[in-house]
Structure formats: C-alpha cells, structure tokens
Design a protein around this nucleic acid. Sequence first.
DNA 1: TTGTAGGCGTTATCAG
DNA 2: CTGATAACGCCTACAA
Lengths: 336, 336
Amino acid sequence: MVTLKDVAKLVGVHPSVVSRVINNDGNLKIKEETRKRIQQAIEELNYRPNLSARNLKNSETKMLGMVIPDFSNPVYASIIHGAEDQAALEGYNLLLYSMKQKGLEKNYFSHLMENRIDGLLIANSESDDKEILNLKKEKKPFVLVNRFITGISNHVILDDELGGKLATKHLAQLGHKRIAHITGPLFTGTGIKRFQGYREGLKEEEINFISSYVQESEYTIEGGYRSMQALLDLSTPPTAVFASNIMVSLGAMKAIQDRGLSIPRDISIIGFHEVDFASSLSPSLTTIKMPLYEMGSESVKKLITIIQGREEENELGLIISGASLVVRDSTSPFLS
Amino acid sequence: MVTLKDVAKLVGVHPSVVSRVINNDGNLKIKEETRKRIQQAIEELNYRPNLSARNLKNSETKMLGMVIPDFSNPVYASIIHGAEDQAALEGYNLLLYSMKQKGLEKNYFSHLMENRIDGLLIANSESDDKEILNLKKEKKPFVLVNRFITGISNHVILDDELGGKLATKHLAQLGHKRIAHITGPLFTGTGIKRFQGYREGLKEEEINFISSYVQESEYTIEGGYRSMQALLDLSTPPTAVFASNIMVSLGAMKAIQDRGLSIPRDISIIGFHEVDFASSLSPSLTTIKMPLYEMGSESVKKLITIIQGREEENELGLIISGASLVVRDSTSPFLS
DNA sequence: TTGTAGGCGTTATCAG
DNA sequence: CTGATAACGCCTACAA
C-alpha cells in the first residue's frame, strides 16, 4: 500500500508537506512548483489516503447511520434517497441498518458509541425509547425521522394530520358520507396523526364520526385485507375508505375485489404515500403524496448541524409541511 | 471519550492488559481476578473501543460496500436482505451505494482504494467494465452480483435461463400457442438468458418461434406498458405473455386492462421475480420465484473468502441454481 | 502473568 | 515556505 511517506520520498520532501497539499485549505502557502511535483507523484504512485488513519486523527468518520424497518418498504426508499443525496452533498456516507437483519443486536447504537458513525438517523418505529434517551444522555448526535418520542425534540416529521384530512375531505367532496378509515397501529405517531386528520376532515365536512367505520390495523398487506373484510361485513358497509398506508391499501383493494365488488363503482379507496407502482395498479390508486424525499434530506441536514455543534441541543423539532392529492381511478363520485 | 488508558488507570494496570482482556483470545493467560476487575472498570466507565484506531491497526474495516441501481426496486430488497444477514453473521457491515445518488462520482471505487471498505459487491447493471477490470488489476476484493463480464470470473448469478424456460413452459402447458416475451435490455446478461430460456421452452414444447412476439424493453413500468401495447396492436395478438421483470409485468398488465381486456380470460401473463405485492395485485400475479436472498448471502460469503485470502483468484463463478413457479390468478388455460 | 516499546497513516503545531 | 515532532487509540512482539 502506498502512503504519504512514499509520495514524500519520491518527491524528496517531508510527508507533512504532502499532507498539506492534499488537504488543500487554499490559504496555506506552498510553492506552486512543489505542489505540482507532489501532485504528479500522487498520480504516478496512484496514492490514496487511508481513511482509517484520517478518521483516527480527526475523530470523525464522515459516515451517518440510518435505522429503517425494512428495505422492501417502498416508502423508505424515498426517504433513503433523500438522505443519501443530502449526505453525499455534504461529504458524508450513509450506513443503513434494517431491523429485519438477523442477529442485529442493535449494533447501530454500538457503532455510534464506537465512533464508526458520527451520528444516527432513527427511522424505525419499534420502541427503543430507553436506549434513545440514553443517547441523549451521552450527548451523541441523532435525529428521529418520521417518529416522535416525548421528551425528545430533535425529530423531523411530516404533517400526517394534514395528509389524513386531505384524504378524508377528498372522499367527502365526492359525495361520500359513509367514509371508513383503516388506521395504522395507534401506538405510533403516524397512525395517531392520520387518524386525527380523518376526524378533522369529517368534522369540516359535517359528517358524523361513526366508530365502527374505524379499523385499527398494522401497516401490512394482511392487516389491510382483514380490516377491509371487517368493514365489508358491517350491515351498512362504507362507500369509501381511507387506508393509512400503501401496504394497507393493497390489502384492502384485494379484499374488496375478492368479494366481487368493483373499485371505484362500489367502493372508493384512497391510499397514503405515493409510490412508483400506484399508477399501474388496477384500478390505479388515488393517493396522498407526502414529501418523503424532503424528510430524508432535511433529517440529514439537521443531523449534520448537530454533529458540527451548530445547533442548540433543545431546538424544536422540524415538521416538513405539505401533502398533496394525486387523483387516479380508485376514487369516484358517490352514486346513490 | 474513554480510552484503554482510562480503564487501565482505574484498575491500576497497563493498557496492553486491558487490550488483551477485550480481544479475549482465550489462550492468553490473565489472572482471573484482574480480568474481573478490568471488566468491571469497563462497565463502570462505559468504555467502547474506538473502531477507527482498531481499523488502522488491523488494516481492515469489517465493512463491505454494495452498489445497487436503486433502493425502490423490490428485487434488490431481497438481495440486500440476504447480503446483510450473511454479513452480520460474519461480523461485517454493509455500506450501500445506490446509483441514483446525486453527485455520486463512483465513490464506491474510491472507498475501496481508500480502505473505507474491505471489499465490494457490484450489483448494478450500468457498464463500468473498465473500472472493474482495474479493480482486478489492483487485486482489490470484489464480486459481481447478478451480473456477468467477460474476462471476470468472480460472479454470483442466478439460473435465469431455467427461470425463463419454466415461465414459458407453464404457459405452453396451459394450452397457449401464441406466447409472447417482453425482454429486458438485450445487452444485459439477465435479459439475454431469460430470452434464451424462452426460446428453449418453446422448443421443448414444439412451438414455433415467432419474432414479432418478442419485444425488447427496459426493466421499467413504462417499458412494459409500451411493449405490451405493441403486442396488442399485432393483427394476431398473443394469448399469453412472459414479462422479463416485475416492473415490466406491472406495465404490461396495465396496458392489457386499459384496452378493456381481461387477465387471464383474454390474455395470461407471468412475471419474473417474486415480490411481496404480487399476491395483492388484481388479478394476483403468477411469477417465477428466484433465489434472490440466497444470491445475496452467497455473494457475501464469496467476497469474504476472497478478502481473507482463502480463495484462488480465478475460481469459477457461482450459479445459484433453482427457480420455481408460483401460480396465481393471472394465468389460466387457453380457451379456443 | 504483566509491562515496555514501537508503529499503523495521518495531521496539527511549532520551529526553522 | 518547509521540516521535525508528537499524537490520535489500539495492538503485538518481546522482555521482565
């Protein structure tokens, strides 16, 4: 392996000079000629700085950890994409940890303590509250992404309430009165807030809240399927459904169609979060599009400011505002 | 930050003793009592070894890079999952690079040269052949995943040909004679081999190959949509279609349904690669399930043997055998 | 069984 | 403008 020394020897100069040329601060003075010779030698030997050594010296790694529930969830693909771009922009790399990983003993926390990563983005919903509070105690840089824990303010979240409201009002404005909601787990911040949005939407449209039209579910295809079945079993089934998540939407659509009912003729359905394949479903799915990419990139921005000590510890959490309706074929006016 | 020294000082012992306790080889002799005291001190101070220092000393990082085209492709989710599990099992971590990343200047190659990662899994299909050959010249550990380059033998691939054959024969055995194939790009190994499988399948079932039933496409929803439209525009359209990829399947299904045709009554369709939501499409999609998870984990195994120098440079590539049919509602017998 | 010394490759500080 | 030196935190011969 080629080191600074080798380059220095070839040029006939001290290693520290080579170091300075590489970390080109601009304002340190080096004779133009030696700089040239050094750069030539670097090319010639194909020298590459050893990052482990640099990391040790600078006590930073320019790597950020990010915990996600699962790579196969398309919603996280967008968040990751935003995070990755922003990280690259600021010279950082992303080390991803999925919760599905076998034998993962929360080594993202270890890595933070062991300085493998400079900071951590926590985007999984499983409850690790104790360890997260510990990070806070240890003053390790981290940011909660799309997640909220009481007592911790450094989070970046979406306006899920607005999204839920938009979805519900869209259905109401199509003339539907019997609007159901398949919620996410009601111990998650997102589940609760989308549900609140649903209630607000009903209120603003002067529709009575009927508790049997609310089914608590998991964020899974199977959950959506079962919950939709329950709704269809009601003596007066809903004519429109707001599904709290894309997986839930898939399950619900399947349940409706398996009963021989047609979307949207018999039942309209709207999903939460926009994904690539929404337009290629049959029928194509009306969705609420949330700024997922932005949430990813803003999370990284926030984490880096914390790492670089440019932020007060107790700044308020960031809400990425915005939510928009993408109308497709799965929702249509209520036909009495 | 707490270091070895701090622990040693607290116990009243030399740092090297502490180091030995941590790297518990088992066969080095340390008085049981001092070991205990050291371990207590470690707990007490909450000491964590600094990985940058360790990496520098050992000239390894226990991190593997992996280049993928895009996080939002569900097929890669399975591969990543397999890779991640195997890596964790062997004490490694995965650093993922998506090709979609902005301002990514192939820094996965740099990272390999700069010893940020110990080896690289190359699973993207974009052509970087020159740089890959360079890696070989530099004797840097890498493995090609689901990809083939002439002159390079360390790859791990699937039996795409078998998969293509299975798909085609399934359709033939349902009585279809007019079987179309929407291929992937025919400059990719996977595209070519699935196409070959298609031809073999036809041959074995004694069905004539008709070139107008072959549409070359990209691995995208749009590509599948356009190619399917072209097939439907034929004077004698096919009654069954083998789509080379899951995205292509989505596009093709949409195209069929947009024409008011029914799947599978008018046209049967089979997709390549099994994904979570295949069963929740409408109709649910018959697919060829390939051992993606295994490909991921085997790739990591192979890479680690190369890193550890346990493998001859020119060993043959590995083919993960196996392909199976998952029959669902999108394929049905041909009705004359 | 434990201590000593040297070095992994880089960079910061100071002196020349 | 360039050189020397020390240090980042850890590990490993070798010596005691």
